[in-house]
Amino acid sequence: MFNLARNELYRLFLSPLAWLILALSTLILAYLFLTHIDNFVQIQAKISAIAGAPGVTELIIVPLFSNTATILLLITPLITMRLIAEERRNDSLPLLLSAPLSIYQIAFGKFFGTLGFFIILLALICLMPLSLSIGSAIDYGVISAALLGLVLLVASFSAIGLYLSSLTKQPAIAAMTTFSGLFLLWIIDWAGTNQMAGESSGLFNWLSLLRHFETLLQGEVNSSDIAYYLIIISLFLTLTIRHLDSERLN
């Protein structure tokens, strides 16, 4: 399973796509990071007098991580689209299917390989806020919670992307459906919150990927949010395994 994950990661880095995604998303986030710092410097003088005013963590790091989540939403489909769809297209899937591997090992291997890539990306992005610790005090608790949130978020993205990639032979279709699916889950709570009554739809709220991420971003680690992500991940991994298995039968 880990051999498979390692191979997946290695092959990812053989394509220019992975490098390009790493470089461009770091570039965009670095620019956003600078604008957040700029904003902070401008208002710093005004808020420094207020006791308990938001600091560097709240005004720079949390918005940066929030931007990161949006960027991840955009790039995950590009990474996950090739997972199974491309293997199918290149006729290389029989290699894995006729090896002494069970389907769950194949699905998990691909999942962890993708996750490995995103952890590298997150590690790069993390360096930016950490560089602030040279000149300022930052709240490591909030950062860790937000980072945990990002990892769980991107793991759910990857699981959803993996499943949708297993359904088709065309990577482009996998990318498009993944993007739509993720985006829908991202904004699904809008239907609830837009109601004037104030009492929003509980189900839609609960389904929203963003809603659960926001609490983690504020430094609040609720077991219900973590459970939500774990449920999403295991649901889509199971669906992938089921689908690949049923493909042999039908």
Partner: peptide
């Protein structure tokens, strides 16, 4: 078993 399908299953970038 070792299996070679009609189209050899290869990762061509390796």
């Amino acid at each position: 078993i070792g299996y070679l399908p009609e189209q050899p299953p290869l990762y061509k970038e390796l």
